[in-house]
Amino acid sequence: MAVREGLLALLHEGPRHGYQLKTEFEAATGGVWPLNVGQVYTTLDRLERDGLVGVSDNEGQKVYSITVDGVSALGAWWEAAPVDEPPPRDELMLKVLMAIERSTERGDAHAMSVITHQRTVLHSMLQSKRRARSVATTSLAARLVTDALVVRAEADLRWLDLCEAQLNGTPTRKARS
């Protein structure tokens, strides 16, 4: 994942210790992206190996700073399109597609009940996110992370609506069978 670039972005603000990077990374991502210290040092070692980060010693503690190459790598990352996993292959999609596949023999009832149930489950999740968001005196980062989850759940729910509409005897479905 983009932990490398996240650390570079923090180092772009100035030199830091490894542990400091861990804490700042977690704060900046609203607490949803915990790093273990080992992972931070492994990543820093690789960044150093690739010439993107330099190390100096300050009273026995290692201090990391970004190099010129590091700055340009970071610049390229801000510009690049985010690369997620290749085409959507998430579990929800698999569930619904498999349910529809089975339905070709058993009728649409099974697929519809899977869609109905998944919709309810997603809504329950949205409700609990909402509650968590309104209870906690959370940071801006934490609120934005929750918003991201909410928006993604909304997208999944819209997709379920489309699945249901198509199964409900639209031309698309009829043409297929």
Partner: peptide
């Protein structure tokens, strides 16, 4: 119609 608005509720009821 909006899931985000429904998420404020104590309970969401689905009709068809």
């Amino acid at each position: 119609h909006e899931p985000r608005f429904a998420s404020w509720a104590d309970r969401v009821v689905f009709m068809r």
